[in-house]
Design a protein around this nucleic acid. Structure first.
Length: 222
DNA sequence: GCAAGGATATCG
DNA sequence: GATATCCTTGCA
């Protein structure tokens, strides 16, 4: 697939793009070796009319990347401590995006554990050694399946921050990018549900079934 | 059940 | 400039 046709795939209707992101690989190229996660949970945000979308107030300094090219990144900080990754969809000027909510770690599990520990250290005001050791022990006990089972955890696992805003997720040279699933990967079924954490948007937006998961997958958030 | 934590949008 | 709110997580 050429770069242009891949780009065109992300310019398609956001709900279609969201479903097709399931199973794709999120790849981080650290200084050491690759981190690879299989996308198992996403949510679609459908522009200014969608009262749950960051685009609901129109274009601002924060959401500007949503107005850019499809296939690029929109990264935001939520609750003051978690970086969340979105893939921009639809043609430039249409501020739609898909939030990557969870991935299944496939490669670089120990690198992900190290990145999770770094993130925990960063978001604490003090670094009490005893507490740090408790966090470390907890991460060692955490099954690989659960290391990136939530949008903030995806950000921590891949060391994401807002410097990635607007970067091209379809460019293999980008520090974080997307890759297609292997052709021989088994089929899976897709479950739909309401989006998480957006009650403030009110009906009908709070109940639209625009959250998509690989049905029954252990790495889906709870 | 709730605190942590900081940027953001909106209001005065 | 002040403040309410937030596409969350981990521990009490």
């Amino acid at each position: 697939m050429t770069a242009d046709s891949l780009r065109a795939a992300f310019a398609r209707p956001t709900l279609d793009v969201a479903r097709s992101l399931l199973g794709m690989r999120l790849v981080g190229d650290g200084s050491n070796r690759r981190i690879v996660g299989r996308i198992v949970e996403v949510e679609a945000y459908l522009g200014p009319a969608d009262r749950a979308s960051h685009a609901r107030f129109g274009e601002t300094a924060r959401n500007r990347p949503m107005y850019g090219d499809p296939g690029r990144a929109y990264v935001y900080l939520v609750y003051g401590m978690y970086h969340c990754l979105n893939v921009v969809t639809e043609p430039a000027g249409t501020p739609h995006a898909v939030l990557i909510r969870a991935v299944e770690p496939l490669e670089g599990v120990e690198l992900i554990r190290a990145a999770r520990l770094r993130a925990e250290r960063l978001r604490r005001r003090s670094i009490d050694p005893a507490e740090l050791e408790r966090v470390h022990a907890r991460l060692e006990r955490t099954p690989a399946d659960r290391l990136a089972a939530g949008p903030g955890l995806v950000g921590a696992a891949f060391g994401l921050d807002r410097t990635l805003n607007g970067s091209d997720l379809l460019d293999p040279a980008n520090p974080v990018h997307l890759e297609a699933a292997p052709a021989d990967e088994p089929a899976f079924s897709i479950a739909t549900s309401a989006r998480v954490g957006i009650a403030y948007a009110g009906p009908p937006w709070s109940s639209e079934p625009w959250r998509f998961t690989i049905a029954g997958h252990p790495s889906v958030s709870r």
